[in-house]
Write a protein that binds this DNA or RNA. Structure first.
Lengths: 131, 131
DNA sequence: AGATGTCAACGAAGCCCTTCGTAGATGCGG
DNA sequence: CCGCATCTACGAAGGGCTTCGTTGACATCT
């Protein structure tokens, strides 16, 4: 397996990853601006830089240094990271039962009917195709 | 409101809370034994004690000091804590969409048919009585 | 070339979490 | 009463996360 398991991102790291997933590969400046746009009085430039350097050491992102302003790229897709976070939470707080987590998620906030329908289709697939 | 918002429990704290939810109110020794039963070479007694003292300061648990061995009691139910963790995760990693989290949970691990059925019933309720 | 602005790198500080050694209080059996 | 076990309390150490000031490299404009 070429995919070594990546560490669970911290809150701050996750915020940066979300920017990268949304914008695509970005420089530190771009990430910083995106973050301070959502949350003025947020974090300083060098803070974001440091975080992204550490994320590079951890393998959460890669960077292209061919330009003066290095370009960062997530090493895991959003989906893959979401999956990891979910399984983590299922194990830590839901006794290993994904369904219980799913039910908790749906009960806690109200969800658009469209998404409920989509979820129902997924349920059909899961119940139908047994293997 | 009498319910001040409790802080998000750390991994270690969550492990302790799970013991309290499962066993009911317990002393440090009881929690420690439960933990080392699952995970020998786990944490030492004083470590658990310290954690639980800090959890008391944070308000995650209360303690009854009338006995020499203090008895600890979770201040939030398992459900309430699960709900908090789920909404946290939904906001931090799923763009606020509980349904997407639910789908990720179901796709990642295989779930017992019985639980799928239960989930489907919940879906019926949500779609039926909504709007 | 010199001034100005942008960038990565580094290191230190502060805070939190976890771990544990040690000390002091309390109960119990002889 | 003495010694032993059990318990809480305290403090310190180590590591991780976050924050930021500073420095030096590099580019650009005049």
């Amino acid at each position: 397996m070429s995919e070594t398991k990546l560490p669970r991102p911290t809150d701050g790291e996750l915020a940066i990853l979300r920017v990268l997933w949304a914008r695509g590969d970005s420089t530190v400046r771009e990430v910083h601006e995106a973050l301070t746009r959502d949350e003025p009085e947020g974090t300083g430039y060098t803070t974001v830089l440091k975080l992204m350097q550490i994320m590079t050491e951890k393998g959460l992102v890669e960077r292209d240094e061919s330009q003066r302003a290095h370009v960062y790229r997530p090493r895991a897709t959003e989906q893959r990271t979401q999956r990891q976070l979910v399984t983590d939470l299922v194990d830590r707080a839901f006794g290993g039962s994904p369904a219980r987590l799913a039910m908790q998620a749906l009960s806690s906030k109200k969800t658009r009917p469209e998404e409920l329908a989509e979820l129902r289709r997924l349920l059909d697939t899961l119940e139908g195709g047994e293997e």
